[in-house]
Amino acid sequence: MQASDWRQRLAAAGLTDNFIFNKTFLDTGLTKELICRVLPDLQVGKLKIVDTQHELATTYDSKGLRFDIYAEDDYRNRFDIEMQVLNRHNLAQRIRFYQSMMAMDSYEREKDYRNSGNAYVIFFCCFEPGGTGDQWYRTERDIHSEGTHRQLSDGEVSLCFDVTSPLRTVNPPLQNFLDLVAGRTVDESDDFIVQLKKRIAFVKQNRKWRREYMLRTVYEMDIEHDRRQAVKEGLKQGLEQGIEQGKQQGLEQGASDERLALIRDLIDSGQSADEVINFLTTVRKLPVAEAQKYYHQALTKCEPK
């Protein structure tokens, strides 16, 4: 990697960059103001950042969880704030896991369940997270019985926001923050926005964090290089095997199964939808519509990671 690459990447980075987001909201004042904009009806006490990239695990061999921002206030409210750039199609399951881990963390420190406080998981997504075209979603646990429907006040609340949405259905202060994240025009008279921009500039100039960013970027690029080399070799082997199998099978169903297996391998190896479909159309000579059909069939059979 050229020495200037990471500097250019850092200079262009905004709050959608996980590193910038983490370091920016180490500032408790900014984090509290963001929470107040997301939850304007909630009384937020004195806030403490437990950690950024805070990791929890229930047992030594269980799946761990790494929070972007994990904060608590003196009313025993807990907040997990996440920036999610890629849609991995498992957001609902991730939110459930985050909530369960926050509950375990709380119950370990409290003797009475009633003292565990409330838990808020907040996702800012660079995609539409709910599939209905709305700008934001709020979920709480419900109770359904014959003739009744009410909320179970267990203190768990989850919120997801689509920062790319053209809709403006949130309160104006929060909308101004979403506009900043999305790179849209913002109200420059908003002091929160002013302070956020100053903080982002400070993060980018901090010598310790610049070195941390550089090392992380070099590591990520090395991993990406190794992955691409492995995928390139895998494509070559897969093509050779596919040609040989095609000669032997000759049956439409067999060919279909082989294509689906190969596509699942490509997906598992980290290939994007465009890369997989391009492979199918250019190497396998499939029509675009047929390539898309096979991709979506394979995608539905891939287990979430």
Rank of each mutant, 00 (worst) to 15 (best):
T132N: 14
Q297E: 14
I20D: 09
L196Q: 01
L26H: 07
E244M: 15
L65A: 13
E140V: 03
L39W: 11
F79H: 06
Y295Q: 09
R94G: 02
L91A: 07
L10Q: 12
E72Q: 08
L39R: 11
R211G: 00
Q245R: 11
F123V: 01
D73R: 02
R284S: 14
L91Q: 07
W209Q: 05
A103W: 14
S165T: 04
F21E: 05
H54Y: 12
E188W: 08
Y120L: 08
I122W: 03
S153T: 08
K198V: 06
E212C: 07
Y294G: 10
E240K: 10
A103E: 15
A289S: 10
C302Y: 05
L251M: 08
V283S: 14
L215T: 03
Q195T: 09
I69P: 04
V218I: 13
L26K: 12
D5R: 11
D222N: 08
R259I: 00
S256P: 05
F177R: 04
R216F: 06
M214I: 04
C302T: 11
V283N: 12
I143K: 09
R228S: 05
L10M: 11
I81R: 07
Q195S: 12
N77H: 14
C126P: 05
Q93M: 09
Q237Y: 02
I49C: 03
I193E: 10
K204I: 07
L34K: 00
D274R: 12
C302R: 12
R210Y: 00
Q229C: 08
F192W: 06
T28A: 10
Y213V: 03
Y107Q: 15
V44A: 00
E275L: 11
D274T: 13
K32W: 03
F97L: 07
I277P: 07
M83R: 07
K236D: 04
L30R: 07
N22G: 08
S189K: 14
K236P: 00
E128F: 02
G130C: 01
C126R: 12
R227D: 01
N171C: 03
D191I: 15
G133F: 04
N206F: 05
V170P: 05
D265A: 12
A3W: 09
R9Y: 11
R109Q: 14
D80E: 08
G250F: 03
I69L: 11
L34Q: 01
